[in-house]
Amino acid sequence: MNKLLISLLVSVGITGVAHASGDAAAGQSKVAVCAACHGANGNSAVGNFPNLAGQNEQYLLKQMEDHVSGRRTIVEMTGMLDGYSEQDLKDIAAYFSSQPVVIGQADAEQVEQGEAIYRAGLADKGVAACSACHMPSGQGNDPAKFPALSGQHPEYTLSQLQKFAEGSRDNDPNGMMRDVAGKMSEAEMRAVAQYIRGLN
């Protein structure tokens, strides 16, 4: 059932393309406040803050919109988007999406397990492969608003998996990530997070 739902959502995302209509050049002048945590080009120097560089434009826009509307609570971003228009958010998303992500070094001891989960899932637990939505190379699916994962900090990835598992983050479509993360052990989450850091 999970695989069917994922397939349907991916198909709907691909056929229901809606562009974010952001202007990357305009966005560059609007990201000064973002740079303190995410880096001027979207590559964060601190693992607790996500890399935004190379992230899918529509996914970034959705997360900012969800935060502004209260659909997603990001404590560290409280007040950060106040005063920004919808077009500003589109421009910021376009700017960060256009920047190259810096791929990191994965923990060699966890790569094998992490890759197995990312590419094949956990059949005995009913966990679909991460690559089904986030693609084999980790570029995600922009029309479906599924995020790119390639190069993401393991600390951030782990924290988001934990939040989905406990339900404190719930802005995933149809509870997909809550279902997946809720069936994973912390060790499995850590392995996947490490693998994603070096995924290219």
Rank of each mutant, 00 (worst) to 15 (best):
N2L: 14
L4Y: 13
S11D: 14
V12L: 13
V12N: 15
V17A: 13
A18E: 14
H19C: 15
G22V: 04
D23H: 07
A24D: 11
Q28M: 12
Q28D: 10
K30D: 03
A36M: 13
C37M: 06
S44H: 03
G47D: 03
N48K: 15
F49H: 04
N56Y: 02
E57S: 12
Q58G: 12
Y59D: 02
K62H: 10
Q63R: 05
Q63T: 10
Q63D: 09
M64W: 01
G70D: 09
M77S: 05
G79D: 09
S85V: 13
K90T: 02
I92H: 07
A93H: 06
A94H: 00
Y95V: 10
V102C: 12
I103V: 12
D107K: 06
Q110L: 13
Q110A: 08
V111I: 11
G114Q: 01
E115F: 02
Y118N: 04
G121A: 11
L122R: 06
L122E: 03
A129G: 05
C130S: 01
S131K: 09
S131M: 11
C133M: 07
M135P: 10
K145P: 06
F146C: 04
P147V: 01
P147H: 03
Q152T: 05
E155L: 09
S159D: 04
Q160V: 13
A165Y: 04
E166C: 14
R169N: 08
N171S: 12
P173W: 08
R178A: 07
E186C: 09
A187V: 05
M189H: 06
M189V: 07
R190D: 10
V192K: 02
A193M: 00
Q194L: 09
Y195C: 03
I196L: 09
R197E: 15
G198S: 07
G198L: 01
L199H: 00
L199Y: 00
N200S: 12
